[in-house]
Design a protein around this nucleic acid. Structure first.
Lengths: 224, 224
DNA sequence: GTCTATAACCGGATAGAC
DNA sequence: GTCTATCCGGTTATAGAC
Protein backbone atom coordinates (compact mmCIF):
# COMPACT_ATOMS: atom_id res chain seq x y z
CA UNK A 1 0.00 0.00 0.00
CA UNK A 2 2.73 2.44 0.99
CA UNK A 3 4.75 1.31 -1.98
CA UNK A 4 1.85 1.60 -4.35
CA UNK A 5 1.06 4.97 -2.85
CA UNK A 6 4.50 6.41 -3.30
CA UNK A 7 4.76 4.98 -6.74
CA UNK A 8 1.55 6.55 -7.70
CA UNK A 9 2.66 9.80 -6.21
CA UNK A 10 5.86 9.65 -8.15
CA UNK A 11 3.93 8.99 -11.33
CA UNK A 12 1.71 11.95 -10.68
CA UNK A 13 4.69 14.15 -10.13
CA UNK A 14 6.23 13.07 -13.41
CA UNK A 15 2.94 13.68 -15.15
CA UNK A 16 2.70 17.11 -13.59
CA UNK A 17 6.22 17.94 -14.71
CA UNK A 18 5.31 17.02 -18.27
CA UNK A 19 2.21 19.16 -18.20
CA UNK A 20 4.15 22.10 -16.83
CA UNK A 21 6.80 21.77 -19.48
CA UNK A 22 4.17 21.52 -22.19
CA UNK A 23 2.19 24.50 -21.03
CA UNK A 24 5.28 26.61 -20.80
CA UNK A 25 6.38 25.72 -24.29
CA UNK A 26 2.91 26.18 -25.71
CA UNK A 27 2.77 29.62 -24.15
CA UNK A 28 6.17 30.49 -25.56
CA UNK A 29 6.00 29.12 -29.04
CA UNK A 30 2.48 27.94 -29.68
CA UNK A 31 1.22 24.46 -30.25
CA UNK A 32 2.59 23.58 -33.66
CA UNK A 33 6.09 24.76 -32.96
CA UNK A 34 6.32 22.80 -29.75
CA UNK A 35 7.62 19.30 -30.34
CA UNK A 36 6.97 16.34 -28.11
CA UNK A 37 10.70 15.88 -27.97
CA UNK A 38 11.10 19.38 -26.59
CA UNK A 39 8.34 18.79 -24.05
CA UNK A 40 9.99 15.59 -22.90
CA UNK A 41 13.41 17.18 -22.67
CA UNK A 42 12.01 20.20 -20.85
CA UNK A 43 10.35 17.90 -18.37
CA UNK A 44 13.51 15.87 -17.97
CA UNK A 45 11.97 12.64 -19.21
CA UNK A 46 12.35 10.55 -22.31
CA UNK A 47 10.07 10.88 -25.28
CA UNK A 48 8.60 7.44 -24.68
CA UNK A 49 7.90 8.33 -21.11
CA UNK A 50 5.93 11.37 -22.13
CA UNK A 51 3.80 9.09 -24.26
CA UNK A 52 3.34 6.77 -21.34
CA UNK A 53 1.48 9.55 -19.59
CA UNK A 54 -0.19 11.23 -22.54
CA UNK A 55 -1.70 9.28 -25.37
CA UNK A 56 -0.98 12.04 -27.84
CA UNK A 57 0.16 15.59 -28.16
CA UNK A 58 -3.41 16.73 -28.33
CA UNK A 59 -4.10 15.14 -25.00
CA UNK A 60 -1.65 17.55 -23.51
CA UNK A 61 -3.93 20.30 -24.63
CA UNK A 62 -6.60 18.99 -22.33
CA UNK A 63 -4.45 20.24 -19.51
CA UNK A 64 -4.62 23.62 -21.13
CA UNK A 65 -8.35 23.37 -21.39
CA UNK A 66 -8.65 22.32 -17.80
CA UNK A 67 -6.65 25.34 -16.67
CA UNK A 68 -8.71 27.72 -18.67
CA UNK A 69 -11.84 26.22 -17.26
CA UNK A 70 -10.56 26.31 -13.69
CA UNK A 71 -9.49 29.90 -14.13
CA UNK A 72 -12.89 30.70 -15.53
CA UNK A 73 -14.79 28.94 -12.78
CA UNK A 74 -12.83 30.94 -10.26
CA UNK A 75 -13.15 34.23 -12.10
CA UNK A 76 -16.85 33.75 -12.64
CA UNK A 77 -17.69 33.01 -9.03
CA UNK A 78 -17.88 36.63 -7.84
CA UNK A 79 -20.26 37.43 -10.66
CA UNK A 80 -22.65 34.86 -9.29
CA UNK A 81 -22.65 36.02 -5.72
CA UNK A 82 -25.16 38.56 -4.51
CA UNK A 83 -26.72 38.92 -7.90
CA UNK A 84 -30.11 37.56 -8.80
CA UNK A 85 -30.76 39.24 -12.12
CA UNK A 86 -30.48 36.53 -14.74
CA UNK A 87 -29.12 38.77 -17.43
CA UNK A 88 -26.42 40.14 -15.19
CA UNK A 89 -25.49 36.66 -14.02
CA UNK A 90 -25.22 35.34 -17.53
CA UNK A 91 -23.36 38.38 -18.76
CA UNK A 92 -20.95 38.14 -15.86
CA UNK A 93 -20.11 34.55 -16.67
CA UNK A 94 -19.64 35.23 -20.35
CA UNK A 95 -17.56 38.35 -19.84
CA UNK A 96 -15.20 36.63 -17.46
CA UNK A 97 -14.90 33.83 -19.99
CA UNK A 98 -13.72 36.30 -22.61
CA UNK A 99 -11.28 37.79 -20.14
CA UNK A 100 -9.84 34.43 -19.25
CA UNK A 101 -9.34 33.25 -22.79
CA UNK A 102 -8.11 36.51 -24.23
CA UNK A 103 -4.39 35.81 -23.66
CA UNK A 104 -4.76 32.70 -25.79
CA UNK A 105 -6.23 34.39 -28.79
CA UNK A 106 -2.96 34.80 -30.59
CA UNK A 107 -2.48 31.05 -30.49
CA UNK A 108 -6.06 30.34 -31.26
CA UNK A 109 -5.38 29.22 -34.79
CA UNK A 110 -2.96 26.64 -33.55
CA UNK A 111 -4.65 25.82 -30.30
CA UNK A 112 -8.20 25.53 -31.42
CA UNK A 113 -7.85 24.56 -35.01
CA UNK A 114 -8.42 20.93 -34.24
CA UNK A 115 -11.12 21.68 -31.74
CA UNK A 116 -13.77 21.31 -34.39
CA UNK A 117 -12.46 18.03 -35.73
CA UNK A 118 -14.95 15.38 -34.64
CA UNK A 119 -12.11 12.97 -34.06
CA UNK A 120 -9.96 15.31 -32.07
CA UNK A 121 -9.96 14.77 -28.32
CA UNK A 122 -9.88 18.54 -28.09
CA UNK A 123 -13.30 18.80 -29.57
CA UNK A 124 -15.67 19.91 -26.85
CA UNK A 125 -18.27 17.47 -28.18
CA UNK A 126 -15.84 14.59 -28.21
CA UNK A 127 -16.19 11.71 -25.78
CA UNK A 128 -12.94 12.60 -24.07
CA UNK A 129 -14.29 16.03 -23.32
CA UNK A 130 -17.27 14.78 -21.35
CA UNK A 131 -15.93 16.10 -18.03
CA UNK A 132 -15.31 19.57 -19.41
CA UNK A 133 -18.72 19.55 -21.02
CA UNK A 134 -20.37 18.52 -17.80
CA UNK A 135 -18.62 21.14 -15.74
CA UNK A 136 -19.57 23.79 -18.23
CA UNK A 137 -23.17 22.70 -18.12
CA UNK A 138 -23.14 22.79 -14.35
CA UNK A 139 -21.82 26.31 -14.37
CA UNK A 140 -24.80 27.43 -16.40
CA UNK A 141 -27.12 25.47 -14.19
CA UNK A 142 -25.80 27.60 -11.34
CA UNK A 143 -26.37 30.73 -13.37
CA UNK A 144 -30.02 29.78 -13.69
CA UNK A 145 -30.52 28.56 -10.15
CA UNK A 146 -29.27 31.74 -8.60
CA UNK A 147 -31.79 33.80 -10.49
CA UNK A 148 -35.47 33.75 -9.74
CA UNK A 149 -36.57 33.10 -13.28
CA UNK A 150 -39.07 30.32 -13.64
CA UNK A 151 -38.61 27.81 -16.41
CA UNK A 152 -41.29 25.37 -17.55
CA UNK A 153 -40.66 21.93 -16.13
CA UNK A 154 -40.71 20.10 -19.43
CA UNK A 155 -37.72 21.97 -20.78
CA UNK A 156 -35.93 23.00 -17.59
CA UNK A 157 -33.56 20.10 -17.68
CA UNK A 158 -32.32 21.00 -21.16
CA UNK A 159 -31.62 24.66 -20.69
CA UNK A 160 -28.24 24.54 -18.89
CA UNK A 161 -26.73 22.39 -21.58
CA UNK A 162 -28.17 24.61 -24.27
CA UNK A 163 -26.58 27.59 -22.59
CA UNK A 164 -23.26 25.81 -22.61
CA UNK A 165 -23.62 25.13 -26.32
CA UNK A 166 -24.46 28.81 -26.74
CA UNK A 167 -21.27 29.73 -24.93
CA UNK A 168 -19.31 27.45 -27.24
CA UNK A 169 -20.79 29.38 -30.12
CA UNK A 170 -19.52 32.59 -28.56
CA UNK A 171 -16.05 31.11 -28.33
CA UNK A 172 -16.22 30.04 -31.96
CA UNK A 173 -17.13 33.58 -32.92
CA UNK A 174 -14.33 34.92 -30.76
CA UNK A 175 -11.83 32.72 -32.54
CA UNK A 176 -12.68 34.46 -35.77
CA UNK A 177 -12.85 37.92 -34.31
CA UNK A 178 -9.95 40.17 -35.18
CA UNK A 179 -11.68 43.43 -34.37
CA UNK A 180 -9.95 45.88 -32.06
CA UNK A 181 -10.26 44.86 -28.40
CA UNK A 182 -12.46 42.05 -29.63
CA UNK A 183 -15.25 44.60 -29.93
CA UNK A 184 -17.49 42.46 -32.09
CA UNK A 185 -17.44 39.57 -29.68
CA UNK A 186 -18.23 41.88 -26.79
CA UNK A 187 -21.14 43.28 -28.74
CA UNK A 188 -22.26 39.75 -29.49
CA UNK A 189 -22.11 38.78 -25.85
CA UNK A 190 -24.01 41.80 -24.65
CA UNK A 191 -26.72 41.70 -27.24
CA UNK A 192 -27.16 37.97 -27.50
CA UNK A 193 -27.25 37.41 -23.76
CA UNK A 194 -30.06 39.92 -23.52
CA UNK A 195 -31.85 38.08 -26.28
CA UNK A 196 -31.29 34.73 -24.65
CA UNK A 197 -32.67 35.95 -21.34
CA UNK A 198 -35.71 37.38 -23.07
CA UNK A 199 -36.30 34.05 -24.71
CA UNK A 200 -35.90 32.16 -21.48
CA UNK A 201 -38.40 34.43 -19.80
CA UNK A 202 -40.81 33.94 -22.66
CA UNK A 203 -40.58 30.21 -22.42
CA UNK A 204 -43.56 30.12 -20.06
CA UNK A 205 -45.76 32.14 -22.36
CA UNK A 206 -48.73 30.03 -23.49
CA UNK A 207 -48.49 31.45 -26.97
CA UNK A 208 -45.10 29.86 -27.35
CA UNK A 209 -46.16 26.49 -26.08
CA UNK A 210 -46.25 24.84 -29.52
CA UNK A 211 -42.84 26.25 -30.30
CA UNK A 212 -41.51 24.94 -27.02
CA UNK A 213 -43.00 21.54 -27.64
CA UNK A 214 -41.44 21.41 -31.07
CA UNK A 215 -38.09 22.37 -29.65
CA UNK A 216 -38.42 19.75 -26.97
CA UNK A 217 -39.28 17.08 -29.49
CA UNK A 218 -36.27 18.12 -31.51
CA UNK A 219 -33.95 17.92 -28.53
CA UNK A 220 -35.23 14.52 -27.59
CA UNK A 221 -35.03 13.10 -31.08
CA UNK A 222 -31.48 14.14 -31.61
CA UNK A 223 -30.64 13.01 -28.13
CA UNK A 224 -29.15 16.18 -26.77
CA UNK B 1 4.56 29.90 -78.00
CA UNK B 2 3.89 26.36 -79.12
CA UNK B 3 6.58 25.13 -76.78
CA UNK B 4 5.29 27.15 -73.87
CA UNK B 5 1.78 26.02 -74.70
CA UNK B 6 2.65 22.34 -74.77
CA UNK B 7 4.66 22.67 -71.60
CA UNK B 8 1.74 24.24 -69.83
CA UNK B 9 -0.54 21.61 -71.21
CA UNK B 10 1.77 18.91 -69.99
CA UNK B 11 1.89 20.46 -66.57
CA UNK B 12 -1.87 20.69 -66.39
CA UNK B 13 -2.20 17.09 -67.40
CA UNK B 14 0.14 15.99 -64.69
CA UNK B 15 -1.69 18.12 -62.20
CA UNK B 16 -5.00 16.65 -63.29
CA UNK B 17 -3.61 13.13 -62.96
CA UNK B 18 -2.57 13.87 -59.41
CA UNK B 19 -5.98 15.26 -58.51
CA UNK B 20 -7.75 12.26 -59.99
CA UNK B 21 -5.48 9.88 -58.17
CA UNK B 22 -6.04 11.72 -54.93
CA UNK B 23 -9.80 11.86 -55.22
CA UNK B 24 -9.96 8.19 -56.01
CA UNK B 25 -7.85 7.25 -53.05
CA UNK B 26 -9.72 9.62 -50.77
CA UNK B 27 -12.98 8.05 -51.85
CA UNK B 28 -11.60 4.57 -51.24
CA UNK B 29 -9.78 4.99 -47.99
CA UNK B 30 -10.57 8.41 -46.63
CA UNK B 31 -8.25 11.31 -46.17
CA UNK B 32 -6.13 10.23 -43.26
CA UNK B 33 -5.38 6.81 -44.62
CA UNK B 34 -4.34 8.15 -47.98
CA UNK B 35 -0.65 8.96 -48.06
CA UNK B 36 0.95 11.45 -50.37
CA UNK B 37 3.26 8.67 -51.42
CA UNK B 38 0.28 6.61 -52.53
CA UNK B 39 -1.21 9.55 -54.38
CA UNK B 40 2.06 10.14 -56.18
CA UNK B 41 2.49 6.50 -57.07
CA UNK B 42 -1.12 6.23 -58.22
CA UNK B 43 -0.63 9.24 -60.43
CA UNK B 44 2.63 7.84 -61.75
CA UNK B 45 4.77 10.66 -60.45
CA UNK B 46 7.32 11.03 -57.72
CA UNK B 47 6.51 12.29 -54.28
CA UNK B 48 8.47 15.47 -54.84
CA UNK B 49 6.66 16.05 -58.07
CA UNK B 50 3.30 15.87 -56.37
CA UNK B 51 4.50 18.56 -54.00
CA UNK B 52 5.59 20.64 -56.95
CA UNK B 53 1.92 20.92 -57.94
CA UNK B 54 0.28 20.94 -54.53
CA UNK B 55 1.76 22.80 -51.66
CA UNK B 56 0.32 20.38 -49.16
CA UNK B 57 -1.99 17.46 -48.79
CA UNK B 58 -4.77 19.77 -47.73
CA UNK B 59 -4.52 21.68 -50.93
CA UNK B 60 -5.65 18.58 -52.74
CA UNK B 61 -8.95 18.92 -50.96
CA UNK B 62 -9.88 22.14 -52.67
CA UNK B 63 -10.78 20.11 -55.69
CA UNK B 64 -13.16 18.12 -53.60
CA UNK B 65 -14.78 21.14 -52.09
CA UNK B 66 -15.51 22.68 -55.43
CA UNK B 67 -17.24 19.51 -56.55
CA UNK B 68 -19.54 19.39 -53.55
CA UNK B 69 -20.56 22.95 -54.07
CA UNK B 70 -21.50 22.58 -57.67
CA UNK B 71 -23.37 19.36 -57.02
CA UNK B 72 -25.60 20.89 -54.35
CA UNK B 73 -26.55 23.92 -56.39
CA UNK B 74 -27.69 21.59 -59.13
CA UNK B 75 -29.43 19.09 -56.89
CA UNK B 76 -31.38 21.71 -54.97
CA UNK B 77 -32.99 23.35 -57.98
CA UNK B 78 -35.82 20.84 -58.55
CA UNK B 79 -36.90 21.09 -54.93
CA UNK B 80 -37.72 24.75 -55.47
CA UNK B 81 -39.87 24.38 -58.54
CA UNK B 82 -43.63 24.07 -58.23
CA UNK B 83 -43.64 24.22 -54.47
CA UNK B 84 -44.81 27.16 -52.42
CA UNK B 85 -44.97 25.73 -48.92
CA UNK B 86 -42.06 27.25 -47.04
CA UNK B 87 -41.40 24.25 -44.89
CA UNK B 88 -41.30 21.92 -47.85
CA UNK B 89 -39.03 24.26 -49.75
CA UNK B 90 -36.61 24.58 -46.87
CA UNK B 91 -36.70 20.89 -46.16
CA UNK B 92 -36.06 20.10 -49.81
CA UNK B 93 -32.95 22.23 -49.91
CA UNK B 94 -31.60 20.84 -46.67
CA UNK B 95 -32.30 17.24 -47.59
CA UNK B 96 -30.55 17.55 -50.93
CA UNK B 97 -27.65 19.09 -49.10
CA UNK B 98 -27.40 16.03 -46.89
CA UNK B 99 -27.64 13.76 -49.89
CA UNK B 100 -24.91 15.58 -51.72
CA UNK B 101 -22.48 15.66 -48.86
CA UNK B 102 -23.11 12.16 -47.56
CA UNK B 103 -20.34 10.49 -49.59
CA UNK B 104 -17.90 12.88 -48.03
CA UNK B 105 -18.68 12.14 -44.46
CA UNK B 106 -15.50 10.17 -44.01
CA UNK B 107 -13.51 13.27 -44.85
CA UNK B 108 -15.25 15.21 -42.21
CA UNK B 109 -12.27 15.31 -39.91
CA UNK B 110 -10.15 17.17 -42.30
CA UNK B 111 -12.87 19.17 -43.89
CA UNK B 112 -13.81 20.65 -40.65
CA UNK B 113 -10.35 20.87 -39.27
CA UNK B 114 -9.47 23.26 -42.05
CA UNK B 115 -12.90 24.79 -42.19
CA UNK B 116 -12.74 25.80 -38.55
CA UNK B 117 -9.33 27.34 -38.82
CA UNK B 118 -9.95 31.08 -38.94
CA UNK B 119 -7.01 31.43 -41.28
CA UNK B 120 -7.97 28.68 -43.67
CA UNK B 121 -9.45 29.81 -46.98
CA UNK B 122 -11.72 26.80 -46.67
CA UNK B 123 -13.40 28.39 -43.72
CA UNK B 124 -16.92 29.38 -44.75
CA UNK B 125 -16.65 32.59 -42.73
CA UNK B 126 -13.31 33.49 -44.20
CA UNK B 127 -12.94 36.40 -46.56
CA UNK B 128 -11.98 34.15 -49.41
CA UNK B 129 -15.22 32.28 -48.99
CA UNK B 130 -17.34 35.33 -49.63
CA UNK B 131 -18.55 34.03 -52.99
CA UNK B 132 -19.61 30.69 -51.57
CA UNK B 133 -21.27 32.42 -48.65
CA UNK B 134 -23.11 34.73 -50.97
CA UNK B 135 -24.28 31.92 -53.17
CA UNK B 136 -25.54 30.08 -50.15
CA UNK B 137 -27.39 33.13 -48.92
CA UNK B 138 -28.95 33.63 -52.30
CA UNK B 139 -30.15 30.07 -52.36
CA UNK B 140 -32.04 30.66 -49.13
CA UNK B 141 -33.34 33.97 -50.41
CA UNK B 142 -34.89 31.97 -53.25
CA UNK B 143 -36.34 29.53 -50.74
CA UNK B 144 -38.14 32.42 -49.05
CA UNK B 145 -39.17 34.26 -52.17
CA UNK B 146 -40.86 31.26 -53.68
CA UNK B 147 -43.07 30.87 -50.62
CA UNK B 148 -45.83 33.28 -49.75
CA UNK B 149 -44.75 33.86 -46.16
CA UNK B 150 -44.60 37.49 -45.13
CA UNK B 151 -41.61 38.73 -43.19
CA UNK B 152 -41.43 42.06 -41.34
CA UNK B 153 -39.52 44.59 -43.38
CA UNK B 154 -37.02 45.49 -40.71
CA UNK B 155 -35.60 42.02 -40.53
CA UNK B 156 -36.39 40.67 -43.97
CA UNK B 157 -32.99 41.45 -45.34
CA UNK B 158 -31.24 39.44 -42.65
CA UNK B 159 -33.19 36.24 -42.80
CA UNK B 160 -31.60 34.59 -45.86
CA UNK B 161 -28.15 34.92 -44.39
CA UNK B 162 -29.37 33.61 -41.06
CA UNK B 163 -30.80 30.60 -42.81
CA UNK B 164 -27.46 29.99 -44.43
CA UNK B 165 -25.76 30.14 -41.04
CA UNK B 166 -28.42 27.73 -39.80
CA UNK B 167 -27.55 25.35 -42.62
CA UNK B 168 -23.89 25.57 -41.64
CA UNK B 169 -24.95 24.53 -38.18
CA UNK B 170 -26.69 21.51 -39.66
CA UNK B 171 -23.51 20.58 -41.45
CA UNK B 172 -21.55 20.95 -38.26
CA UNK B 173 -23.93 18.57 -36.52
CA UNK B 174 -23.74 16.16 -39.44
CA UNK B 175 -19.99 16.09 -39.17
CA UNK B 176 -20.30 14.73 -35.66
CA UNK B 177 -23.13 12.35 -36.44
CA UNK B 178 -22.18 8.70 -36.52
CA UNK B 179 -25.70 7.35 -36.11
CA UNK B 180 -26.95 4.76 -38.58
CA UNK B 181 -28.00 6.31 -41.87
CA UNK B 182 -27.27 9.64 -40.26
CA UNK B 183 -30.61 9.30 -38.50
CA UNK B 184 -29.93 11.99 -35.93
CA UNK B 185 -29.11 14.59 -38.53
CA UNK B 186 -32.22 13.74 -40.47
CA UNK B 187 -34.26 14.12 -37.32
CA UNK B 188 -32.54 17.42 -36.70
CA UNK B 189 -33.30 18.67 -40.17
CA UNK B 190 -36.93 17.67 -40.04
CA UNK B 191 -37.63 18.98 -36.57
CA UNK B 192 -35.53 22.11 -36.71
CA UNK B 193 -36.78 23.19 -40.11
CA UNK B 194 -40.31 22.97 -38.79
CA UNK B 195 -39.26 25.02 -35.83
CA UNK B 196 -37.52 27.57 -37.98
CA UNK B 197 -40.54 27.97 -40.19
CA UNK B 198 -42.74 28.43 -37.14
CA UNK B 199 -40.43 31.11 -35.89
CA UNK B 200 -40.34 32.86 -39.23
CA UNK B 201 -44.11 32.89 -39.33
CA UNK B 202 -44.22 34.25 -35.80
CA UNK B 203 -41.86 37.05 -36.63
CA UNK B 204 -44.80 39.34 -37.42
CA UNK B 205 -46.50 38.71 -34.10
CA UNK B 206 -46.61 41.93 -32.06
CA UNK B 207 -45.77 40.01 -28.92
CA UNK B 208 -42.41 39.18 -30.35
CA UNK B 209 -41.60 42.67 -31.48
CA UNK B 210 -39.15 43.43 -28.65
CA UNK B 211 -37.41 40.14 -29.27
CA UNK B 212 -37.17 40.92 -32.95
CA UNK B 213 -35.80 44.37 -32.24
CA UNK B 214 -33.18 42.95 -29.92
CA UNK B 215 -32.17 40.43 -32.50
CA UNK B 216 -31.94 43.11 -35.13
CA UNK B 217 -29.78 45.28 -32.94
CA UNK B 218 -27.53 42.32 -32.30
CA UNK B 219 -27.15 41.57 -35.97
CA UNK B 220 -26.33 45.16 -36.78
CA UNK B 221 -23.80 45.54 -34.01
CA UNK B 222 -21.82 42.48 -34.89
CA UNK B 223 -22.07 43.41 -38.52
CA UNK B 224 -23.55 40.22 -39.87
C1' DG C 1 1.98 -3.99 -11.96
C1' DT C 2 4.26 0.80 -12.40
C1' DC C 3 7.51 3.40 -14.65
C1' DT C 4 11.28 4.77 -17.86
C1' DA C 5 14.33 4.61 -21.79
C1' DT C 6 16.03 3.57 -26.50
C1' DA C 7 15.34 2.68 -31.12
C1' DA C 8 12.59 2.51 -34.86
C1' DC C 9 8.56 3.46 -37.91
C1' DC C 10 5.80 6.28 -40.72
C1' DG C 11 4.29 9.87 -43.48
C1' DG C 12 4.25 14.93 -44.49
C1' DA C 13 7.34 18.10 -46.24
C1' DT C 14 11.82 20.10 -48.36
C1' DA C 15 16.51 20.50 -50.87
C1' DG C 16 18.85 20.24 -54.56
C1' DA C 17 20.58 17.69 -58.74
C1' DC C 18 19.31 17.00 -63.43
C1' DG D 1 9.10 19.69 -64.31
C1' DT D 2 10.80 15.73 -62.45
C1' DC D 3 13.44 12.95 -59.57
C1' DT D 4 16.14 11.04 -55.36
C1' DA D 5 17.60 11.61 -50.90
C1' DT D 6 16.76 13.45 -46.61
C1' DC D 7 14.73 15.85 -42.78
C1' DC D 8 11.55 16.21 -39.16
C1' DG D 9 8.34 15.21 -35.68
C1' DG D 10 4.30 12.40 -34.02
C1' DT D 11 3.80 7.84 -32.64
C1' DT D 12 4.81 2.96 -31.45
C1' DA D 13 7.34 -1.32 -30.10
C1' DT D 14 9.77 -3.16 -26.86
C1' DA D 15 13.07 -4.13 -23.38
C1' DG D 16 14.08 -3.69 -18.97
C1' DA D 17 14.24 -1.25 -14.16
C1' DC D 18 11.97 -0.52 -9.86
Amino acid sequence: MTTAGSRTRKGEQTKARIVEAALELFRESGYDDTTMRAVAQNAGVSLGNAYYYFKSKEHLLHAYYARIHAAHAEAAAPALENESDLHKRLLGVLKTKLEVIEPFHRFSGLLFRTAADPKSPLNPFHEDSAPARQEGTQLFARVLEGSRVKIPKDIAQKVPHLLWVYSMGIVLFWLHDDSKDRARTHALVEQSSELVVKMIKMLSNPLLRPLRKSALKLLNEIDV
